[in-house]
Design a protein around this nucleic acid. Structure first.
Lengths: 132, 132
DNA sequence: TGCATTTCAGACATCACGTCTTTATCCTAG
DNA sequence: CTAGGATAAAGACGTGATGTCTGAAATGCA
């Protein structure tokens, strides 16, 4: 059984999280955020992680700026969707509905959350094929 | 950044899926199912995967039977829940609600599915702390 | 009792992934 | 314009996860 590498590894995700929070950042800025007490050894690590993320089209590198600036090409929601689909593929033959049911049961939804979920469903009723 | 091993690997999951379908099985039966054209080389592989699953408490080995019989200790829904929580931990600080919202948006819910989801929510309104 | 099957313990190869090293390139202070 | 510091680029490396396989001991059956 072939081993399938992860789409985004944990270390890569840590970098991505900072990019989601802060937007356009340089390697130096990212390194300082990720390793506040860093001795400077970690710069190359962040650099390599960004290089891999760029190769996988998850971040964009602006080479016109100096030093280069990086920004995410994938949003948090996009990644959530992707991970959910991967889970569905492995456990439900690709169907998302079982995940949905599971979540509704498992989540301790507050009345407010239930209500907002209902309005979300109402929205979907109203715009069956709208772009959002 | 420490690498965290998976709870259940892909190969282990393949074994577990058969157990979910068929219930109590021997290594031989599982091997024949997983490798229909198997030359018998795979027996030990399945054996090792079951050994690891047992060590992680995901399957139970009945040593009174001969040959030993295995059955799952974790259900498909349990694993779905676990994987969803892991995803939430990595991407939403543990909160499941964002996953739920994401799914409702992403899934092409038919009107019927929306309706059954609504009644599920109604159930939750009615039994705030019931056992199910 | 002999044989086939199963059990058990462990070895092994490959690869993912986080980290580090080295060299080339670029900007800027003086 | 040059020297020095920072950055970019390419690659090497170690550890560990994971799938697979080997060999020997144990067990049941003909």
């Amino acid at each position: 059984m072939a081993r399938t590498p992860q789409d985004i590894t944990d270390a890569e995700l840590a970098v991505l999280q900072v990019l989601w929070d802060r937007g356009r950042e340089t390697i130096r800025e990212l390194t300082d955020t990720l390793y506040p007490s860093g001795t400077g050894v970690h710069y190359a690590t962040v650099q390599k992680l960004l290089e891999r993320l760029e190769a996988k089209k998850f971040v964009k590198r602006d080479r016109t700026a100096w030093p280069h600036r990086f920004e995410p090409l994938i949003g948090r929601d996009d990644l959530i969707s992707r991970r959910l689909q991967l889970t569905a593929d492995k456990l439900c033959e690709g169907a998302l509905a079982p995940l949905l049911t599971n979540l509704v049961r498992a989540t301790r939804l507050s009345p407010e959350e239930r209500q907002s979920l209902r309005s979300l469903l109402d929205d979907l009723d109203r715009e069956p094929k709208a772009k959002r």
